[in-house]
Nucleic acid binder design. Structure first.
Lengths: 110, 110
DNA sequence: TTTTGGTACTTTGTGATACAAGGTATTATA
DNA sequence: TATAATACCTTGTATCACAAAGTACCAAAA
């Protein structure tokens, strides 16, 4: 098992992705490719094969809904929208994230 | 699939565990039960079935070594010690953690 | 001296999930 | 009517955290 700097980042972000998606959709609705672009801009690379099943899982959990919209530049886009339940979940995740940051900080103390 | 607050925390910390272990062992050598105690004190619950294989993986990667030590209170303990390679890895992880915190922060900006 | 309880290390099976790779479908343009 | 670009989806694989059960050592009580 290799352990390059890239692998370290990949490892570390596991489980945080779901949080990122909800955070993005809490700002504005978006379709998958746009979400990937925003993640890339924030320095977190995600591939389609990861994102699509994740969006479907969150939709099935009632955290998101979606609607189709025509595009002038290709096939129709599936715009995802965060739901009330999704916002509740996001609030929990905000809390969990704060705690995780605190936990790491505590562990670093000598 | 349930999604309690506890599950959220569990999900989120995936991949961060390895970082936590190296951070603890960078302060002082320790055996598994003591590591679990320190994690619990920092609000991160981990069970034996998770920790032992993880320590073995890190040892096999050359990040840790160990030595046996007698105990007055039961069977001998396996004390793990971080290696030079482990410290290098930890430095990379410190960087990756900083970036991840930054990434989340960026995604939260409207 | 046998049993009991506590401590510590280990293994097996399961479910979740990120990714690589490949596939389908729509639209515009050459 | 190809071709390229865009967009969505699926399958197979590897990894990993966890639950649960097992093994081994030691000391103190019965």
């Amino acid at each position: 098992m290799e352990n390059t700097a890239e692998n370290v980042r990949a490892q570390m972000r596991k489980g945080v992705l779901e949080y990122c998606i909800l955070s993005i959709l809490n700002k504005r609705e978006a379709y998958a490719s746009a979400i990937i672009e925003e993640l890339k801009a924030a320095n977190m690379i995600v591939v389609e094969g990861t994102l699509y099943p994740l969006l479907i899982r969150q939709k099935n959990q009632g955290l998101l809904s979606y609607r189709w919209e025509e595009s002038t530049q290709g096939p129709p886009r599936k715009y995802y929208v965060i739901s009330d339940k999704g916002r509740e979940q996001l609030a929990q995740m905000d809390e969990a994230w704060k705690e995780l940051v605190e936990t790491i900080s505590t562990l670093k103390e000598k």
